[in-house]
Structure formats: C-alpha cells, structure tokens
Design a protein around this nucleic acid. Structure first.
Length: 531
RNA sequence: GCGCUCGUAGCUCAGCUGGAUAGAGCACUGGUUUGCGGUACCAGCGGUCACACGUUCGAAUCGUGUCGGGCGCACCA
C-alpha cells in the first residue's frame, strides 16, 4: 500500500517523499510533511503548497480524500483500493507481504563454540538471527543461514581435558585437582558415559588421548546444540568447521601479500593501518594460529563463495573485533563494506523480581533449553524478538508464564483464536464470506482493515532496518485493535456478518503470517487453564 | 585513559532516515454491554524524553560537551 502511495507521489513530484503514519488516525492513513521542505525552494508558505498539492490529487482512484492540514498533506485511501487489496491477499495468502528481492545474502549467527550447551545469551542472537532470516526469505532474498563451528584451538583441548576431569571424579572416583580453567556442567556426565561406551574406559584417564576424545565430543555437543535450536524452530542451512579451513592457509596468506609480516618469530597482520589499536598476532611463536587466524580463513572462504552481502551476528562483547576482521577482508582484496556486523547485547534474567544469576565458574549456567522448558519456545522467541537487539535486556520469567493480556504472546494468540471461534460459529457459508464486499463497513472496521493490511510494510521495514522488534510491536497493536473491535461490534447473526467475518479473515491472515515470521505458530484455540 | 554503546512514566520497554497534543504493558485506582470466550474492554494516575549548548520554521530524534550505566581495549575464544 505504502509503496503504491509513494510511487504516486514520486510520479507527481519527481522526488522521494517521506511518508508517515499520522499519530491520530482521523488525519487519514498516510501523511507527509513534504510541504515544509518545499517551502524554501518554492518560496511559498507550506500551507499554500499543501493546499495546491491536495487539490491536485482529487482525481486519484486510490484516495478517497487528500487534505491539507496545517501544512501537512493527509491521504485517506479509498474503500475500493483497500477492499481490492484485501481480497487479493485472501485469495493469495502465501504471497501476502512477500517481496521480490534477489540479492544473495550469507547470514552467520549463533556460532557458539562446540564445547557446551547453549546458554541464555546465545538464545538472543539465535532468535534475532532466525527472525531476520525468516523476514529475508519472505521478502524474496536468497539467504543462507550459517553456523561457524570453532572446532580448533584451545577450547577444544579444554573440552577433552574437562571430560577427563569429570570422569575421573565421577566415574573413576579419583580425587581430582582442578586447574584454573575447564568446563563444567551436567552435559559432561552424558559425554563421559558416552565416551566410555564408545572408546572403552581407558580413554577417560589417558592424557595422550585428550585430543581424540575432544574431536569425538565436539560432534556430540553440536548434536545437543542443534537439538536445542530445533526446539525453538531454528535451523541452519550450512555448518562450516574451522578445522577444515586450514588446508587453505598458505594460499590465503599469500593472498594477503605484504599486509602480513613476521616479527619476534610471530606472524602479524597490519590491522593498525585500518584503524585498529595495533597490529594483531595471527600465528604465535610456537606456530599455533590465533582465533583471528581462523576468522581470516573463514571470511576468505565466505567471500570466495561469492555473496552480495554478508551479515554476522555477534555477541556485544565482540564489538572490538569488527575492525580486525574487516581489515583482514580488505587485505584479502574484498570489499569489507559488504560485511555487516550486528551485535546482540547481554541478557539478564529475573524470576519473580529476583535476579537469576549466571556464573560460569560455578557451572550453574542458565541453559537455553531450561528456558524453553520453563516458558516455551513461543514466549522465548517473542521476548527476544521484541526488544532492540543492541540494548541490554532484562526480563522476568514469571511474566511470560501468565495466561492473560499482560503476556503479549498470549494476547496475540488469543486474538487469533478468537477469530477462529467466531468463524466456527458463523451462520453464513464460507462462500458467502468470500463473496462478501469489504465496503461500507463503517469507520471502526475500516480502521481495523487498514491495520491488518499494514503487515507488508512492517515486514519490509523490520528487515531493512534490522529492527525485528517492529514486527511484534505491530502484532501487539493489531491484536489490541481486534480485541477492541470484538468488544464494540457484534458480528454473528447480524446483517453484515459475512463482510465482518471476511474482515476478520484478513486480520487472522496478518497475525498468522506475522507470527510465522517469528517462528511461532498461530493457535486456533486457547486451552483453558485448569484451576 | 581510549573506543563502542545505552540513558524516555515507579518497573520492563517502544518511538530515533527531525515534523501535528511523548506511547504500550506491568504496578496502582475506579469502571464495563441484561450479547459472539470478561483469558476481554474503558477510564484515571504517572514524563524538565539524564543535563547543557548548538543546527533548524520545527529536536526525544541530528551535532558537540558534561554526568551516569554496560561492554570492549589478549599471542582467550
């Protein structure tokens, strides 16, 4: 709709025009303050310009009215236009709100180390990434969801060690002296039991076999990770293992040319010349590559695969890392502007107002799977998608267990279910409904119809701005409009039943489509809580 | 110290490509149809949009500075 209006204005004025939603719906469906910016160049008052523009639109079929108020230009879409659009959407539900972009995008997210289960911090990036992914797909982008598996380096050695430590204490009943850093958590129990069965009990105490143990275990951990993500409707198209990338090492270094140099027996990249604080070590003096080394070969491989655009979602604690990776991409001869890094901020949890502490050292990490068990995948997704990803978030678990309007996911689901209930009570046939006209519905209904048809704009805006919270915000307000409408207007058994139900179908379509873009399935009825 | 980021109602957060009286939910107070699920709806209460200066016809939104919170400043990942 908005595109249509924009296009008309562009045609008329020969320039892009800012369109906004008026705060007060009585002003119309769309508005633009264009007259203010024209005032200077035309040397006329904004009021006069707006008047002139308004009258020039009087012939358009798309608008029922175009008015100028205090210099603003307010557009009201015609019933015909809205009705036709809505009918089209109902006839082509799977095409509703879709777009026609064909850019190839590589979206990398989660990429948690395969050394333990996902915790609550990973969940935020996971939900954010998957929501972006769904939006992009819907808009027609050729997008690939990728998980980078850091299965090389210290953390993997540490995994082998940690399993042995755990097994020695709990399976072999030895007394163990713990080093400064190692992993802990319940999952080690399953891993050590599994290792015992797979390799035999000797591997649990043979230090020379730690690597072998770790390489086996990291695949098991990835199974846990993939499983947790699947619980939340998150799936990846591709997984790239860091360990498989080093065969290209020499070739990649050659590509970097003289942006790599040796000093003190180590290999550096000249990242300082690209705005970094100082040059970074890529290979240590003992020959072991650093974390950055892995990212260099990985990003080289990404760019060799040839996408139009790259998006990485990283935890906010990695933001200092962006410059380095971009520097490396430049050195490799690619355009680092094609890489967009989005940061997901920290999450802190409350339960009934009390902080829910997460401490790695004590091993009582809050697992993503625990939260899913506690409040369900839908609520988890909704919470994380509802907040701007780049601000720290605090939320209370208890709020999302409530079964009433204070719980937004419940509220939206209830709106959808309410519509289904009404449809099941209809005294008219499906055919009556689909043939019904959406005209002459009255003002309340027109407003609701317009709100429901806004989804395409919201989807596009949410993706383009990378602000996925716009979608849940929209769904909340659409649900509110629906509940209010339900309260104000009696539908079943009235003269207008067919057309009103058709209107509700449009609302349901929007809600259902919107929820599915958030990885949430719309419900047709709410289960009453047993009291 | 340097860099990034955030500071909007008692709480959790929207709004930020500058635009018409600053929004929602929670909490608190009070209401609601002799009707489709009251698992809902309405109203009230509550704000110097951290502060200052600047740009502009117009600033919560842009710029600079100050204060405050978070994160980062590894040859750890």
């Amino acid at each position: 709709m908005k595109q249509r209006v924009s296009a008309l204005l562009r045609e008329k004025l020969g320039r892009e025009v800012v369109l906004e939603k008026p705060r007060d719906r009585s002003f119309g469906h769309f508005a633009t303050p264009i007259a203010f910016s024209l005032a200077k160049e035309l040397r006329k008052s904004p009021m006069v310009i707006a008047e002139e523009l308004a009258s020039s639109f009087s012939e358009s079929a798309e608008f029922s009215s175009v008015e100028s108020v205090k210099g603003y230009l307010n557009f009201r879409l015609s019933e015909n236009f809205l009705a036709e659009y809505a009918s089209w959407a109902l006839d082509n539900p799977s095409a509703f709100a879709k777009g026609e972009n064909n850019q190839k995008i590589l979206l990398e997210f989660v990429s948690a180390n395969p050394t333990g289960p996902l915790h609550i911090g990973h969940a935020r990036g996971a939900v954010y990434g998957d929501t972006l992914y769904r939006l992009a797909k819907h808009l027609g982008y050729d997008i690939t969801a990728e998980y980078y598996v850091n299965d090389a380096g210290n953390q993997i050695d540490l995994l082998g060690l940690s399993i042995q430590l755990y097994a020695r204490e709990h399976i072999l009943n030895e007394s163990v002296v713990y080093p400064e850093s190692y992993y802990r958590g319940e999952y080690l129990d399953a891993l050590s039991q599994g290792a015992k069965e797979h390799f035999g009990i000797e591997i649990l105490s043979d230090e020379s076999r730690q690597k072998e143990l770790a390489m086996w275990a990291k695949d098991k951990v990835m199974e846990i990770v993939v499983d947790t993500l699947a619980q939340t409707n998150i799936h990846f198209d591709t997984f790239v293992n860091e360990s498989g990338l080093y065969k290209d090492w020499d070739r990649v270094m050659k590509k970097m040319g003289d942006n790599v140099y040796e000093a003190e027996g180590k290999l550096f990249i000249k990242s300082e010349s690209k705005g970094d604080d100082h040059d970074r070590v890529v290979v240590r003096d003992d020959g072991r590559p650093t974390y950055l080394a892995g990212d260099i070969v990985y990003h080289n491989q990404k760019f060799e695969r040839g996408y139009d655009h790259y998006i990485n979602i990283w935890g906010a604690d990695h933001h200092g890392y962006i410059t380095r990776v971009k520097a490396a991409i430049d050195f490799l001869g690619y355009e680092s502007e094609k890489l967009e890094v989005l940061l997901a901020q920290m999450v802190s949890l409350l339960k009934d107002g009390e902080p829910y502490k997460m401490s790695k050292r004590a091993g009582n990490v809050i697992l993503m799977s625990d939260i899913v068990d506690e409040i369900g995948s839908d609520a988890l997704r909704f919470i994380f998608a509802s907040k701007k990803s780049d601000t720290a978030l605090e939320f209370d678990l208890a709020e999302f267990k409530k079964q009433d309007s204070s719980n937004p996911i419940f509220y939206i689901q209830y709106a959808h279910a309410r519509i289904q209930t009404l449809l099941s009570k209809a005294t008219v046939t499906k055919e009556d409904i689909s043939k019904a006209s959406l005209k002459n519905l009255g003002e309340n209904a027109d407003t609701l119809l317009f709100d429901a048809l806004l989804l395409p704009e919201v989807v596009e805006d949410a993706f383009n701005s990378r602000q996925v919270q716009k979608l849940p915000e929209y769904l909340k307000s659409l649900a509110a409009s629906l509940h209010k409408f339900y309260y104000d207007v009696r539908m079943i058994g009235t003269e207008d039943e067919a057309k009103l139900l058709k209107l509700l179908l449009v609302v349901a379509l929007s809600i259902k489509t919107g929820l599915s873009l958030m990885g949430i399935e719309a419900k047709d009825r709410m289960e009453r809580e047993e009291v």
